[in-house]
Computed example of a mutant assay.
Amino acid sequence: MTNGDGSGLRARTRRAVRAELAATAIGLFVERGFDDTTVDDIAAAAGVSRRSFFRYFPSKEDAVFGDAEDVAGRVADAVTARPAGEPPWECLRAVLHDWREPIRAAHPDPALLRLIETTPALRARLHVKREQMRERIAAALLARGGLDAFTADLLTGAAGAALDAANRAWLRSDGALDHAELLDRAFTALRPQS
């Protein structure tokens, strides 16, 4: 029996298997390289069939970015839930500050981030996933009212650029710099002038 919210046993089991497959794939990608790791390698290491892998992920790239849609939806929901009178930029800043750890936790290892940055197929998939996320967040920002579509897109793109800059600085420091402080610096530098 399910609760209707995705917390039933079957849904939890599916999420656990998906997470295990993703962790196995990522471990192999970091160890061997993305291009040198096949779906068959991942399936064998995880103890499943190739067909089972494709039940959870449409491609090996998706094993790296599999939960991006869920995160995008939850971040958009967080934008919607912010106080109505809050300025849009401060709304985005607060939401990304609250979500910086879950977003970063999806790729906590600097080695994985370097792999994404240096692998054309992963960089391309990252770009697509980020655009999908930005579209959902911009729509949520627009739905709050008081903005036109252009400004919602612009602010959401700037917030994404702030997050990207913080991530790159964090990566260059091998994770030694405080990610929250980097994100705060980036948002401060890009704050729209009244």
Rank of each mutant, 00 (worst) to 15 (best):
T2R: 11
N3S: 11
D5P: 02
R10L: 12
R10K: 10
T13Y: 03
T13A: 15
A16C: 02
V17R: 11
V17W: 03
R18M: 10
E20V: 02
L21S: 08
A25F: 05
I26S: 00
G27F: 04
L28P: 00
F29H: 00
V30P: 03
E31R: 11
R32F: 11
D36N: 12
T37I: 10
V39K: 00
D40G: 13
A43C: 11
A44C: 04
A45M: 05
S49E: 05
R50T: 05
F53Q: 03
F54N: 12
R55I: 10
P58L: 09
S59R: 13
K60P: 03
E61K: 10
D62S: 14
D62K: 05
D62W: 07
A63G: 07
A68W: 01
V71W: 05
A72H: 00
G73P: 00
A76W: 02
A76G: 05
D77N: 06
V79T: 06
V79P: 01
T80Q: 13
T80S: 14
R82E: 15
G85D: 15
G85M: 07
G85K: 03
L92P: 00
H97E: 15
H97Y: 07
H97G: 13
R100S: 15
R104G: 12
A105F: 02
P108S: 05
P110Y: 01
P110A: 09
L112C: 00
R114Q: 12
I116S: 00
E117M: 06
A121H: 01
R123L: 15
L126W: 13
H127N: 10
H127R: 06
H127T: 15
H127G: 10
V128W: 03
V128M: 07
R130L: 14
Q132M: 08
M133V: 02
M133D: 00
M133A: 14
R134S: 09
E135W: 04
R136H: 06
A138M: 09
A143N: 06
G145Y: 04
G146Y: 04
D148N: 15
F150P: 01
A152I: 10
A152H: 03
L154R: 13
L154W: 14
L154A: 13
T156E: 10
G157R: 04
G157D: 13
G157E: 08
A159E: 05
A159M: 10
G160T: 06
A162H: 03
L163Y: 14
A166W: 04
A166D: 14
A166C: 11
W170C: 10
W170V: 14
L171N: 13
R172H: 12
R172P: 01
G175T: 08
L177Y: 12
D178T: 15
D178N: 15
H179V: 06
E181L: 14
E181P: 01
R185T: 12
A186N: 08
R191K: 12
P192D: 08
Q193Y: 05
